[in-house]
Amino acid sequence: MIAVAVCLLVMLALQVLTPFWWWIMIVAFAHGAAVAKSGRNAFRTGFGAAGLLWLGAGLYFLLAGGRPIAGRMAGMFGLGSPWLMVPVTALVAGLAGAVAGYAGYAVRDALGKRGSGREP
């Protein structure tokens, strides 16, 4: 859980400070490569951190006046409700974070190095 929280905060900081969406993949990859103790752990942490970050942020912007634009976007994707854009956003982020995290772990594993930290 702490790994998820730390990753999420790092992602949040980088996303607020720079205009790049792919930090969620880089941070998840870094966690997988440096910290995760298993592929499954790297996958889940990446999914959780990125997914939760975009879920929370999406929800925040939806409630802060984002209903009309989310409604239009939902229309574009053929979805019935603006609310559905929140889980869609979270799922895409989760997927990106998860595969990046897993790739990070797999690379480290292939190079034969052990994690520098332990998953609590």
Binding site: Q15, W21, W54, G58, A64, G66, A70, V88, V92
Partner: peptide, 20 residues
């Protein structure tokens, strides 16, 4: 481009009522 479009920090979520 879904990643960029759905990104809550730079994507469409930034085009909410703040434009008003």
């Amino acid at each position: 481009a879904l990643g960029r479009l759905l990104d809550p920090f730079t994507g469409f979520w930034q085009n909410g009522s703040r434009v008003d």
